[in-house]
Design a protein around this nucleic acid. Structure first.
Length: 788
DNA sequence: CAAGCATGTCATGCT
DNA sequence: TCAGCATGACATGCT
């Protein structure tokens, strides 16, 4: 944050203002966008990764949720997660949102229209969205689903919102102005950036494209040539792709530059009130472009009425009767708010997810730094916070992406309408639609409440996006739901974590879980509750020790080593800070110096201490220090066998062992205490693990319920919309029929005196209004029958 | 230094 | 009755 604030020093702002005043538009975003990754790594990489919380959060990730926080499999999971993100990033354009506020500050109301006239539909309602972005912790992370789900609520609305909708003929102006950016201007900007670089961050920090080229060894500080080359490339990209000089496209990111500019203008120019009105007018109808013409248009008239329509044929055949529109609007608005409320918590989680992403990316090898998922997150959050200072911001990447993506892939087809919800009270809406609806990068954490909704986010947003797909692209609901099911199954969202191969109980701790695993009890019958042993480990133990009672210290060693071997975590720097002894259910370490190998089983911290202490103290003392109290007591009492044996032997063998040795009463008492405590310790560990698992399952249940609720609300809104549409159609038909009716003399019936009534058999009767009430009392009057 | 966390231990109840 | 398990509560140590 601090770093980024430096970016927006007065000098830069003033300079930008200056440029804008003279009509030159500098798309600083282009610079920023592609330069983020390194900065993210610099700023957030370590900080977000080296916390236990993050570590635990990882459990909630989509495919990692089944992994217990203490599981070694987290390592594997990290890799999978990272790869998954990379794959996802392939179809989610992740252009970090870099909001340079200077654009917002100086914007003239006059230019609003022109700015709003951007051709990109996605920017239509960015005004409110800008505020959303202010709080957006992680635009890129949500980009995938976020963009889609946003479109869910905004698609048609945008089209139908002529008010904000850009006009094709005006976008030219913006683009031209961008094109007018002279080399000198760029050089000036470059100078400013170098100043920033001196402050500690290079342009590459924001240079997404350069990040992709990290493998080629880009260095943030060697900007002079490289930066200029990139500028050239960038401009070339513009020239190459703009074709008719209209479309500015970043050659590497596919980012449409003028869209950014116009979006800025749009955001800046629109008032919050306007945004709110637009939102209210748009939202209920925003989901289905099919309905735009009939539904949305009449209700979108408000502020949009006089405004130019979008280039996407928003010349809607205006005006059908608005009958109950306000009521429905309110109703649906409430529903929307309910959904937002649901998702509100999710918003916070996005930050968590961001951190999770950071964790993943941090631990990822450097040559994979190109992972798109990795940088947008933190960077955008930083910048967005900065933007908030101005009470305005640019649209989040999530918002931009669809249009950018579309423009890149199918420029002729035009952009899918992507209306951003806007509202003056941006808190809810912003968080909900601006931030939450971003699936691409979701790494649903499992940690407690914060992580609760992350999975919800992804899954829900995915399904929302599917629903959108169904609505927008003609998918049938069945198809969408089918996809949704597939998505769910793929996402591993099944509640039944226990049955998952990667379920916590299986993956959990090294010497794990036999509490639920019958296999363990086969080896150490007495340890049926000791639990947490994996089958393989048990098998190993079996092989070495025999099935019955052949317990040897190596078992403990195996377990501990398998669990605590730092090699498992050498790729997870963030785990280095976690020094707890995660030896759930491990047999107690032997207290005997003749088993020095056991010392190797202690945690890294222990070993570090060991290294330190062995330099100073004799091994014996160190062993004493490392031993548990019971071990020390046992040594002091000269107990002739290990605590491991005392604790883990089956009761028969244990008694047999005691009988073999002639022990004093004190020794016997101590041995029994040791056994009791050892058993209880393992029981406590199992108990805690069970608690944890229970909590996780409950969290998942809550997530599912929330997702269901959101889905039902969405369906409800859909139904309401359909009903409204049907009502309007009926109304149209009514008027049409009524207008064609003629009395005996060929004169039309005055609508004020007559009305149509529908009978149960489908016939339509024209009835004097005065008789309507009477008819209700006397069923049969003398209507003139007219059947239609 | 306090807070949060992990772990060990004890007491208690249950099987 | 005893051994063992489950669990709440508390203590301790670490970060």
């Amino acid at each position: 944050m601090l770093y980024l604030k430096k970016y927006f020093t007065e000098g830069l702002i003033q300079f930008t203002i200056l440029l804008s005043l003279i009509g030159v538009r500098v798309d600083v975003d282009t610079y920023l966008n592609s330069q983020l990754p390194p900065l993210r790594e610099i700023i957030l990489g370590p900080s977000s990764a080296y916390t236990q919380t993050q570590f635990h959060n990882l459990r909630n990730t989509l495919d990692g949720y089944g992994i217990h926080p203490k599981s070694v499999e987290l390592d594997h999971f990290f890799s999978i997660r990272r790869l998954l993100n990379q794959v996802r990033s392939l179809d989610h354009l992740r252009v970090p949102t870099t909001e340079l506020n200077a654009w917002l500050v100086h914007r003239d109301p006059e230019t609003v229209v022109s700015a709003a006239s951007q051709s990109s539909p996605s920017i239509a309602l960015d005004n409110g969205g800008s505020l959303e972005d202010v709080n957006s912790p992680e635009p890129s992370a949500m980009r995938g689903a976020g963009s889609t789900s946003e479109s869910t609520y905004s698609l048609s609305g945008e089209d139908s919102l002529g008010a904000v909708a850009p006009e094709a003929n005006q976008e030219q102006g913006n683009r031209d102005s961008v094109d007018e950016l002279s080399k000198e201007d760029i050089d000036l900007i470059d100078i400013l950036w170098r100043q920033d670089i001196d402050l500690g961050a290079g342009r590459e920090v924001f240079n997404y494209s350069s990040r992709q080229k990290d493998g080629e060894g880009d260095k943030p500080d060697e900007v002079n040539e490289e930066a200029s080359v990139r500028e050239e490339d960038w401009r070339n990209g513009i020239n190459l792709q703009e074709g008719q000089g209209v479309t500015l496209v970043d050659g590497e990111t596919g980012e449409s530059i003028p869209e950014e500019l116009s979006r800025l203008g749009t955001q800046t120019s629109m008032s919050l009130q306007e945004c709110l009105r637009l939102l209210e007018a748009t939202f209920p109808f925003g989901e289905e472009s099919e309905f735009q013409a009939t539904d949305a248009a009449p209700q979108l008239r408000g502020p949009a009425e006089n405004a130019p329509s979008t280039s996407q044929g928003l010349s809607l055949p205006a005006t059908l009767p608005q009958t109950d529109a306000p009521l429905d609007l309110e109703q649906q608005w409430q529903d929307i708010m309910a959904i937002m409320e649901l998702q509100e918590m999710d918003v916070n989680n996005t930050a968590e997810n961001t951190n999770v992403n950071n964790v993943n990316n941090t631990q990822a090898s450097t040559n994979e730094s190109g992972t798109m998922a990795s940088f947008g997150v933190s960077q955008s959050s930083l910048i967005n916070q900065d933007v908030s200072l101005h009470q305005a911001s640019l649209p989040s990447c999530s918002q931009d992406l669809p249009s950018l993506f579309n423009s890149e892939l199918e420029p002729s087809v035009g952009q899918r309408p992507n209306l951003r919800l806007s509202s003056s009270n941006s808190s809810n809406i912003n968080s909900t639609f601006g931030v939450t609806n971003l699936t691409g990068l979701f790494l649903p954490p499992l940690n407690s409440t914060n992580n609760l909704t992350s999975m919800l986010d992804e899954s829900m947003l995915d399904e929302i996006s599917l629903l959108d797909l169904a609505m927008v692209e003609g998918f049938s609901q069945a198809q969408a739901s089918q996809l949704e099911d597939e998505l769910d199954s793929d996402s591993g969202l099944s509640l039944d974590s226990g049955q998952s191969p990667a379920s916590p109980s299986n993956s959990e701790t090294s010497c794990s879980s036999a509490a639920s695993s019958s296999s363990t009890s086969a080896t150490f019958s007495e340890e049926g509750a000791v639990g947490y042993s994996t089958d393989s480990e048990v098998a190993t133990a079996d092989a070495e020790e025999g099935a019955v009672g052949g317990y040897q210290p190596e078992y403990s060693k195996l377990c501990r080593m398998s669990y605590q071997d730092p090699s498992h975590f050498h790729n997870l720097p963030q785990l280095d800070s976690i020094n707890h002894n995660h030896t759930y259910n491990l047999p107690l370490a032997s207290s005997y110096p003749e088993q020095p190998e056991l010392l190797g089983s202690c945690s890294k911290k222990c070993r570090d201490k060991h290294l330190q202490q062995t330099k100073i103290h004799p091994p014996r003392e160190f062993i004493d220090k490392q031993s548990s109290r019971d071990e020390r007591r046992a040594r002091a009492m000269k107990i002739p066998f290990s605590n491991d044996k005392i604790v883990n032997l089956p009761v028969e063998e244990f008694n047999e062992l005691l009988s073999k040795h002639h022990l004093s009463e004190a020794q016997l008492s101590l041995i029994r205490d040791i056994r009791r405590r050892g058993k209880n310790k393992m029981a406590a560990q199992n108990c805690r693990k069970r608690k944890l698992d229970t909590i996780i399952k409950l969290e998942q249940g809550v997530q599912d319920l929330r997702r269901d609720k959101a889905r039902l609300l969405k369906e409800k809104m859909e139904c309401l919309r359909c009903i409204r549409q049907m009502k309007q159609k009926v109304q149209i038909l009514y008027q049409e029929v009524f207008s064609q009716l003629r009395d005996e003399e060929g004169r039309p019936y005055p609508a004020s005196e007559y009305c149509l009534q529908y009978s149960a058999d489908g016939s339509v009767l024209i009835t004097p209004r005065s008789m309507t009430l009477e008819q209700s009392r006397k069923p049969d009057k003398k209507p003139k029958d007219k059947k239609k």
